[in-house]
Computed example of a mutant assay.
Amino acid sequence: MSVNAIKSVELPLSEALLAEARDLKLDVAGAAEDGIMRAVKAEKERLWRLENAEAIQAANDYVEKYGLPLAKFRLF
């Protein structure tokens, strides 16, 4: 499926929330898509941090023990 392909789906939503969104003239489908995109991005970031936790910790340990590798060249 193409990244830009559109698929209609049914989502259970609170009637009150949907009514309020419509009263405010919000693009409900766009808001749902935006929310899902944000959730997907956040989950990918969380998984990346978990998968790379050991390497991140090793890098942090190195800097703690030896300092930044090029610190002597920093101008700030």
Results as ranks from 00 to 15, higher is better:
residue 36 I to P: 00
residue 18 L to R: 09
residue 56 I to A: 14
residue 60 N to C: 09
residue 21 A to P: 02
residue 44 K to S: 09
residue 53 A to K: 13
residue 42 A to K: 11
residue 2 S to F: 08
residue 4 N to W: 03
residue 68 L to A: 07
residue 46 R to N: 08
residue 30 G to V: 06
residue 43 E to Q: 13
residue 38 R to H: 07
residue 15 E to F: 11
residue 15 E to I: 08
residue 20 E to P: 00
residue 11 L to P: 01
residue 5 A to L: 11
residue 41 K to H: 07
residue 27 D to F: 05
residue 68 L to V: 01
residue 38 R to V: 04
residue 29 A to P: 03
residue 52 N to H: 15
residue 5 A to H: 06
residue 66 Y to E: 14
residue 40 V to W: 07
residue 41 K to E: 11
residue 3 V to W: 04
residue 76 F to T: 07
residue 6 I to V: 10
residue 1 M to P: 03
residue 1 M to G: 09
residue 31 A to D: 06
residue 2 S to P: 12
residue 67 G to W: 03
residue 42 A to I: 04
residue 75 L to V: 11
residue 27 D to Y: 03
residue 72 K to A: 15
residue 58 A to R: 08
residue 4 N to M: 12
residue 41 K to S: 11
residue 11 L to I: 13
residue 33 E to V: 07
residue 54 E to F: 00
residue 17 L to H: 13
residue 33 E to M: 09
residue 39 A to R: 04
residue 12 P to G: 06
residue 64 E to G: 14
residue 35 G to E: 02
residue 23 D to S: 03
residue 17 L to R: 15
residue 60 N to P: 03
residue 63 V to G: 00
residue 37 M to L: 08
residue 66 Y to H: 15
residue 62 Y to S: 06
residue 63 V to M: 04
residue 61 D to H: 02
residue 16 A to W: 07
residue 69 P to F: 03
residue 62 Y to T: 00
residue 27 D to P: 02
residue 62 Y to E: 02
residue 49 R to I: 10
residue 45 E to W: 00
residue 26 L to Y: 03
residue 6 I to F: 07
residue 7 K to R: 08
residue 7 K to F: 07
residue 58 A to P: 01
residue 25 K to Y: 02
residue 62 Y to V: 00
residue 58 A to S: 09
residue 26 L to E: 05
residue 71 A to T: 02
residue 70 L to A: 11
residue 22 R to T: 14
residue 24 L to E: 10
residue 31 A to E: 14
residue 28 V to R: 04
residue 12 P to K: 12
residue 74 R to S: 13
residue 30 G to M: 02
residue 18 L to M: 10
residue 24 L to V: 01
residue 21 A to W: 08
residue 17 L to K: 14
residue 48 W to H: 15
residue 5 A to S: 13
residue 27 D to K: 03
residue 13 L to Y: 07
residue 76 F to G: 13
residue 74 R to K: 15
residue 44 K to N: 10
residue 75 L to W: 06
residue 34 D to N: 09
residue 14 S to M: 14
residue 43 E to Y: 10
residue 2 S to T: 04
residue 11 L to A: 10
residue 21 A to T: 03
residue 32 A to Y: 04
residue 53 A to V: 01
residue 12 P to N: 10
residue 51 E to A: 15
residue 60 N to D: 15
residue 43 E to A: 11
residue 39 A to G: 02
residue 16 A to P: 01
residue 5 A to T: 05
residue 45 E to D: 15
residue 73 F to M: 12
residue 21 A to H: 04
residue 44 K to C: 07
residue 11 L to M: 11
residue 23 D to T: 03
residue 71 A to E: 15
residue 9 V to T: 03
residue 63 V to R: 05
residue 10 E to N: 06
residue 71 A to W: 01
residue 1 M to A: 13
residue 46 R to V: 02
residue 5 A to V: 09
residue 60 N to A: 15
residue 7 K to P: 00
residue 46 R to T: 07
residue 67 G to R: 00
residue 3 V to T: 10
residue 28 V to K: 04
residue 55 A to S: 11
residue 45 E to A: 14
residue 26 L to S: 04
residue 2 S to G: 08
residue 76 F to V: 12
residue 23 D to P: 00
residue 4 N to K: 10
residue 70 L to Q: 10
residue 76 F to Y: 09
residue 69 P to N: 08
residue 70 L to D: 12
residue 65 K to W: 01
residue 13 L to W: 08
residue 29 A to G: 06
